[in-house]
Design a protein around this nucleic acid. Sequence first.
DNA 1: AGTCAGCAATTGACTAGTCAGCGATTGAGA
DNA 2: TCTCAATCGCTGACTAGTCAATTGCTGACT
Lengths: 163, 163
Amino acid sequence: MNPTPQSSDDVAARAANSRLVRDFGLLIKSATRLEQRIDSALRRECGISHTMLEVLIRLCRRPGEEVSQRQLADNLTLTSSGTTRLIDRMEEAGLVRRVPSAEDRRVALVEPTADGRAAFLQAAAVHAQVVEKYFVKPLTADDYTQLTGALGEIDKALRDDTR
Amino acid sequence: MNPTPQSSDDVAARAANSRLVRDFGLLIKSATRLEQRIDSALRRECGISHTMLEVLIRLCRRPGEEVSQRQLADNLTLTSSGTTRLIDRMEEAGLVRRVPSAEDRRVALVEPTADGRAAFLQAAAVHAQVVEKYFVKPLTADDYTQLTGALGEIDKALRDDTR
DNA sequence: AGTCAGCAATTGACTAGTCAGCGATTGAGA
DNA sequence: TCTCAATCGCTGACTAGTCAATTGCTGACT
């Protein structure tokens, strides 16, 4: 009856082996491993997590700019409650401080302490080493520009439909 | 004394704004968001997590192949205890079953149940939709091949020095 | 045959995040 | 001016993972 009989196993195997599934898996896996390398190097050598470094990067980008927790949550990929707890830990560690906003009494502005800036500079060096080793060195200059271009397009698609 | 005086703020700002930091941030952020989209679509429409789908993909790839938890842990980016608990949840949900290995009594082989294979087929369709939308559609065919090529190189670098 | 170093899986205690719901504050419209 | 929906940050309860220590088993060396 069935001209090309195939078990559900075969159908499943075909889906599991599809090009798209493999390629997409590679993206997720590489990014995850990369982040794990960075994170463990930072913890070992500076005692801070990768997420904390992301906060410091954002806070040091434009010195003097007011940054609320909401803005941080949007920048990092984090919920607002996750951000609350993250800033709790960083404040505890003396890296940042919360300052009530003068304009809106709901918002807590976050700013780096002197220690936080010092930690940032040290962490940035470690970060740079790992990024260089696994992100830059394996690629030709051309690969690199293509890669970041493609990532930019993906990011745009993600940003476009907020869902 | 100092020919080009610059505060530590400026140094920090320069580091925070460097090309490499931004590009690398883009990779991590895009991958994270992509995974979150997939995960929430899967939870909503199939009741399984993205990690569980990864397990099912691995188990359905070569039907009949024996796969141990250790192998799964290596494939997913997970510790062995994380894998134990993941398989606990999946077994609970009726998606997989643990079978003691005949050759080595330490190892637990993991195999998909009929329900697990059915869930896989349904989840693969949802996965494909999201991947199509945010990973394939935003890119030209050329971008796509370049991107996966570059990711392959990064993956190789990560794999090469096991650290 | 007997020892022992090493590996698979598991467990307890912990960490870093999520979600749902809350109180305070804001600002736009009646 | 008052109201009320929306927004910011916080909290309790939970989830999915980590690490360190443990158990049982294996296989290589003596």
